[in-house]
């Protein structure tokens, strides 16, 4: 297992993503806001976990903590056995380049870069040569069925195409954790289903996925659903048979 900048791995079990008793408090004193309260969650390889809850329940905070964009006030967040709290800013950036892929609701792509350049961004930032980065980006785009759009700019793509490029970017290289924050929020239902089908497929291929969504229909693509309210896990479904599994078994 590769570790960013020589950080040693720790034994936290078999999950790609492990959150153990994580608390996040914004502010202090009487104005303190508890965004998360003692949340524990493990996402394993090949597993897609959906997080649901009303606005302000802490879903996005959970995602930010999982990607190292934010720090937990208490508890532990580990990605592929690395304790994110112990890493410097530069090491966290390296984790995001090599281990974690993000997919947001919108503004996922940098408009000044082509599809291939957007996908190869983490590789380029990691020092890969332009040739290698572009080759891997083409492969990733081919996997999401967008090989014909490699040189197109985001402004010239549809919303669904943009999200598929974002998923390609989230998986380019050896990354095994996809963090998706309302990835279908800005899409029509048909395109949204396509994006989720793709996400599901990537997880079935071995990636770990954490999907934040409002819609139960989309959560149906997940193996498990975790319900958040006021920053705490209030419910959690058992491992479920997904529509994709049904479709493939039939």
């Amino acid at each position: 297992m590769s570790t960013p900048n020589g950080v040693s791995a720790m034994g936290t079990g078999s999950g790609v993503l492990v959150l153990a008793d994580v608390t996040r408090v914004h502010g202090r004193g009487p104005t303190a806001v508890h965004a998360l309260r003692g949340v524990s969650l493990t996402v394993g390889a090949g597993e897609l976990v959906a997080v649901m809850g009303p606005s302000g329940s802490g879903k996005s905070t959970l995602l930010n903590l999982a990607g190292g964009l934010d720090h937990a006030t208490a508890g532990m967040v580990a990605v592929e056995d690395m304790d994110l709290d112990a890493l410097s800013a530069a090491q966290l950036a390296a984790v995001r380049r090599r281990h974690v892929g993000y997919v947001f609701q919108d503004l996922n792509l940098i408009p000044a870069l082509t599809a291939a350049e957007n996908v190869s961004l983490p590789l380029e930032l990691d020092g890969a040569t332009a040739c290698i980065a572009r080759r891997q980006a083409r492969e990733a785009l081919a996997e999401v069925g967008l090989l014909e759009l490699v040189d197109r700019f985001p402004d010239d793509m549809s919303g669904g195409q943009q999200q598929r490029v974002a998923i390609a970017r989230a998986l380019v290289g050896d990354r095994r954790l996809i963090l998706a924050d309302e990835p279908t929020g800005a899409l029509d239902s048909e395109t949204g289903e396509e994006v989720l089908r793709l996400l599901r497929a990537r997880c079935d291929a071995g990636a770990a996925g954490l999907l934040v969504t409002h819609e139960a229909r989309h959560a149906g693509w997940a193996d498990r659903v975790v319900f958040l309210r006021d920053g705490a896990v209030v419910d959690e479904t058992a491992y479920a048979v997904t529509p994709q599994a049904i479709a493939t078994s039939s």
């Binding site: 950036a93 995001r96 380049r97 974690v100 947001f104 503004l107 408009p111 983490p122 930032l125």
Partner: peptide
């Protein structure tokens, strides 16, 4: 700003 945020999310180093 949004582009830089995206870059941060995909692992751009702090000096970006």
């Amino acid at each position: 700003r949004p582009d830089l945020a995206t870059m941060a999310a995909v692992g751009a180093p702090p000096r970006s």
